[in-house]
């Protein structure tokens, strides 16, 4: 019990630190939020201009929930990058804290931060377009956000390995990976219009299933039973990617310690 409390306290250290960073960078946080709102509105206005209410809803869901998924992915993927730029990585690695605890803390804050961002975005867009969510299945949408977060956290952990191997190229690769997820996951269009090889890739992106399920839940009011085909792949991906991410992170840490790559860069 003492060990669990200790680990929970250590995990909370990352939540508190990231919250403090968010507070200290509040100006940038406001700027990012304004950019996210403007981006989501711009894309959604395409649906408005066509006069297609279903397309509008589809674009709103894509814009809002992609924002959530990308915020979560980026926050976890940048866990190491921030610490390397600041030079604190060696101190964090020296502390008596398991990597799983570190990653869990970072992931937890990423999810909370993403939820706040998304809620603001959703409220603004709902008011702007007078969206009627009366028959939407909000509960099912929430379930898919949670499950989708879990599988995306696993991929984020794998992405966080890259800056450990090479801080600049690693960060670039995290950015490229995020861009690829945006392209193949059907954020603003159906994955059916993608070339067949891209459709294959889209099947291993958690975002594909999350967005598909949330669209069905919010636009069509689909029940949880109807959404099961989207749920199983997400659960399977969470089951595979999270342990894989933690294992990979441990291997990357060992590699960095062997080659002297934990040193400050930047």
């Amino acid at each position: 019990m003492i060990a669990i409390t200790r680990e929970a306290r250590a995990s909370y250290a990352f939540v508190e630190r990231n919250f403090n960073l968010t507070k200290r960078y509040w100006g940038w946080e406001v700027a990012f939020l304004v950019y996210a709102v403007a981006g989501a509105l711009s894309v959604s206005l395409i649906g408005q201009s066509v006069g297609d209410r279903r397309l509008l809803m589809s674009l709103v869901v894509g814009a809002v929930f992609w924002n959530y998924l990308s915020v979560v992915f980026q926050s976890i993927g940048d866990t190491i990058t921030w610490e390397r730029w600041e030079g604190t990585l060696e101190y964090t690695m020296m502390a008596p804290v398991r990597r799983s605890v570190q990653l869990l803390g970072s992931a937890l804050y990423a999810v909370v931060y993403g939820l706040v961002h998304t809620t603001v975005l959703l409220i603004v867009l709902a008011l702007f377009f007078s969206l009627d969510l009366g028959h939407a299945n909000l509960g099912a949408a929430a379930i898919f956000m949670v499950v989708g977060s879990a599988s995306l956290i696993g991929i984020g952990m794998l992405a966080a390995i890259l800056p450990m191997m090479s801080v600049e190229r690693g960060s670039q690769m995290v950015f490229v990976l995020q861009s690829c997820l945006l392209l193949v996951s059907g954020v603003y269009y159906s994955t059916e219009i993608l070339p067949s090889w891209m459709q294959l890739i889209s099947r291993i992106s958690p975002a594909t299933y999350v967005l598909d399920a949330i669209r069905k839940a919010l636009i069509d009011g689909a029940s949880a039973d109807q959404l099961l085909p989207d749920l199983w792949p997400l659960l399977a991906m969470a089951f595979v990617f999270i342990p894989l991410g933690m294992w990979g992170f441990g291997r990357a840490e060992h590699y960095a310690k062997r080659t002297g790559k934990l040193k400050r860069v930047g």
Partner: peptide, 28 residues
Amino acid sequence: INRVSVDAAFFKKLSPAENLSFAARLYG
């Protein structure tokens, strides 16, 4: 163990109190 290196590495936007609180939590 603990270590002090030649370059004082911190999250520079955070205050000493916030940085030290982070360290304290990591060490339980």
